[in-house]
Design a binder for these strands. Sequence first.
DNA 1: ATTGATGGTTACCAAAAGGTGCCTACTCCC
DNA 2: GGGAGTAGGCACCTTTTGGTAACCATCAAT
Lengths: 123, 123
Amino acid sequence: MKKSYTNGVEATLGIISGKWKPQLLCHLGNRPQRTCDLRQKLPTISQKVLTQQLRELEGDGIITRHISGDRAPFKVTYELTDLGRSLGEILVQMSLWGEHRASQVPDMEIVDGHGGFSRLLEN
Amino acid sequence: MKKSYTNGVEATLGIISGKWKPQLLCHLGNRPQRTCDLRQKLPTISQKVLTQQLRELEGDGIITRHISGDRAPFKVTYELTDLGRSLGEILVQMSLWGEHRASQVPDMEIVDGHGGFSRLLEN
DNA sequence: ATTGATGGTTACCAAAAGGTGCCTACTCCC
DNA sequence: GGGAGTAGGCACCTTTTGGTAACCATCAAT
């Protein structure tokens, strides 16, 4: 179904919002990852939701899905597209802004933030 | 209640996501606005949700609320804070990225986009 | 006295997003 | 033949988010 937005910000938000999408994009920003890698890095996500979020990102052209391995124990690998990489700059800025803001107020905390997007700067 | 995020992107998203927040921020980006101004510009938002979204933005330090007028027909004015203004750069980039993306694919459209955030560039 | 503008609240609903649990299917390994 | 690993589907439920409709209070104008 065709999605309508009233401005570009909403369009962008429609693509990157989702409970796990920022984290997925962060991990995929480093290198391509297999499904099981992602599950290890996001231990509390369910298989269903992981597949769902990845499918949405794929549908929006942010990542691609490769199946390698002729027979069963399939190796499914997800990887950023050029479009996905073009989001990097924005994500880094959002990350810095958010981290800075969280450091200012007591009612906002960033846990588990080992590196995060800031690391993407070191490319 | 204290909000936890795993990275800065989520923190930022937590502040700017909301069905009407991008539009509200866009209108407030130009100049302070009264409640009735905002209602005129967003004819389909309900009073409840308008108040709700504005209160959340206020709670996150993005806007301030001023009541002027000693007696009743109160004049309530909302205005970006410095923090809110510091979001501008990010919003403009998100807007440009989203507009560009929408122009590439047929299943994404931006309606009612007269100016939007791009106009904020002309400061 | 009633209507309208102003800005807001409350109780109740509906839709969307996410989560749980259980199932499939294949193959390798012991 | 019974796991374990791999990737995912499906039915169902809960939580979050947004929407509707009715209401309050105040003052000005008719």
